[in-house]
Simulated scan of single mutants.
Amino acid sequence: MIADAELAPVRADDQLDWAALEAWLRAAIADLPPAPMQVGQFARGHANLTYLITFADRQLVLRRPPHGAIAPGAHDMGREYRVLAKLWQAWPRAPRAHALCEDESVIGARFVVQDYRAGGEVFFKARPASMEGLPHFGERITRALAEALADLHKVDYAAIGLADFGRPEGYLERQLAGWHDRWRRVASAQPVPGLEDLGERLARDVPRPLLATIVHNDFKLDNCQFRPGEPDRVVAVFDWDMATIGDPLVDVGIALDYWPLTHGNPALGLPPGDAFKRHYAAQMGIDVAAIAWYEAFAAWRSGIATQQMYHRFVSGQTSDARMQAVGRRVVEFAARGKAALDAA
């Protein structure tokens, strides 16, 4: 769900049963134009497969899990559908979900269909041309990200029918257990002792959450969309398959885990992650002094998620060469998490 420039023909490995899909969509979604279905693929993503489905002037996004074995609770299209079917009413940055297919015989997996947000800017390594020359660009983007995340965390999730969307009590402990289980399933792809050690340190000192909110669980710059030329407000946020109700500082830790990939890039000019923390804390009116644990947790789970992608490649579940390259980064995440805890 990114800018049109990121669309590409569907990769050979990611072809689906297009006739079966079109028949299902026409039965599930009212008033689709009679024009033939056209399909493109959003090429940037490494995990879920994301397609742009077009019927004349009607454009939709289809998301499904990657090929191969899926860890329990991962790539949950039902979860994404449930949150996006309701959240758009209270938080307009969320695309509206229109349909969920739980019949895996249609395209080989469950999938969700949602709005396509056209005409926006999604970026990560380079400043979009529409924002070249704007003053204080990095600071403005940082404030916009902090404001968007704080606004999400202020949503009254019970009022929009999501009171039972997650279980805040014991949330961090379940997260640790779930990600450790994922690691056990893919650890054989390559040994990373530092990641094991990091998980043990995290489990010994679990913080007590300050409050419970909707948690996106993958909040980062390139899951956010801006209007061309307008760096002061995030207008859409994508990729909700891990969303739940839990500790909002998990989202802050995840954003900070990605921050080193963008901070220091002269094309973006983002300030250090401390600026993001300060803006978020001011918006929420809470203390983020314990954030080091959440930064380390985010690095640990990023390392595990990266190992999952690498495992798909070495086990022959995908021929996407990008998955082979990401395997080298697992050690980096382990070191980043250790550094966060050591500095606390």
Rank of each mutant, 00 (worst) to 15 (best):
I2T: 11
A8W: 00
V10A: 06
R11H: 12
R11D: 09
A12Q: 15
D14H: 14
Q15M: 09
L16N: 04
L16A: 05
W18F: 13
A19C: 07
D31I: 05
Q38Y: 02
G40K: 13
R44S: 11
T54H: 02
D57V: 01
Q59A: 03
V61I: 15
L62V: 05
A71M: 13
A71N: 09
G73E: 01
A74T: 07
R79V: 12
R93C: 13
H98W: 15
F111G: 08
D115R: 13
R117T: 06
G119N: 12
G133H: 04
G133M: 12
P135L: 03
R140F: 07
L152C: 01
V155M: 13
Y157F: 14
G161P: 06
G161I: 07
L162R: 12
P168M: 12
G178Q: 05
D181A: 13
D181R: 09
R184Q: 08
R184N: 10
R184S: 08
Q190M: 06
V206Y: 00
L211C: 13
V215T: 12
H216A: 07
N217F: 01
D218A: 07
C224S: 13
Q225T: 14
F226N: 08
V235M: 08
F238S: 13
W240S: 13
D241K: 15
A243G: 05
G246H: 09
V250F: 05
T262Q: 13
L268K: 03
P272K: 01
A275W: 01
I286H: 07
A289P: 02
A289F: 03
A290W: 00
A292I: 05
Y294G: 04
Y294P: 03
A298C: 03
S302V: 04
G303D: 04
I304Q: 03
I304W: 02
T306K: 04
Q308K: 07
Q308Y: 09
H311S: 11
F313Y: 15
D320N: 12
V331K: 14
A335P: 03
R336L: 08
A340F: 00
A343V: 11
A343C: 04
